[in-house]
């Protein structure tokens, strides 16, 4: 996984052969190409680190649909990162169940320990902290999602250890 730590240049981006194959696989699943926009945007996010305008244009070109259609979708959904994120995108649930089990403390604790507020990226580009809505882990809060992985029943110490142990 190659996660970008700086903004994309203005010029066009190019998908790897593997990503192109993956998008082809998604396109084949739907009656029209436009329907594959969501999975193709995920491929782009993984491939380029975040969904920049250049990445949207690349998706549009790959799917052979207008750029505006891709932009509509990408800006509507919050889980496509429209700004660069760190190597580890730490998403902390701030919704009610997690809040009752101490999400507030967790968010504050991590903020202080990493020296960044939610929405910011650490200077070394390793972590981006984000407070998100329900992660659908209400029975086992507070919960945290680091890139694609879930961590549950957290305390500040446990969470910090998980983050520091990451490669």
């Amino acid at each position: 996984m190659s996660l970008a730590q700086s903004e994309h240049p203005k010029g066009p981006l190019e998908f790897s052969a593997k990503a192109k194959d993956e998008i082809k696989h998604h396109v084949a699943k739907y009656p029209d190409r436009r329907a594959a926009t969501l999975p193709a945007l995920y491929v782009a996010q993984r491939e380029f680190g975040y969904v920049s305008p250049a990445a949207m244009a690349t998706v549009a070109r790959e799917l052979d649909i207008p750029e505006t259609w891709v932009r509509e979708v990408a800006t509507w959904y919050t889980m496509y990162n429209k700004v660069p994120v760190g190597k580890y995108h730490v998403q902390l649930c701030g919704n009610i169940s997690c809040h009752l089990t101490g999400a507030d403390k967790l968010i504050h604790g991590l903020s202080q320990a990493l020296g960044i507020k939610p929405g910011e990226t650490s200077k070394d580009g390793r972590y981006t902290l984000a407070e998100v809505e329900c992660l659908a882990s209400c029975g086992s809060g507070p919960a945290m999602q680091v890139n694609d992985d879930y961590h549950e029943h957290l305390t500040v110490e446990k969470a910090l250890k998980i983050l520091r142990d990451l490669p």
Binding site: K10, M56, A60, T68, W69, R71, T75
Partner: peptide, 21 residues
Amino acid sequence: DNQLAQINRGDRSVIACAEGK
């Protein structure tokens, strides 16, 4: 000619073209 899009959502929705267009 699909030049216009409704971007963002909720009360932040605006009409826009593709980036740079």
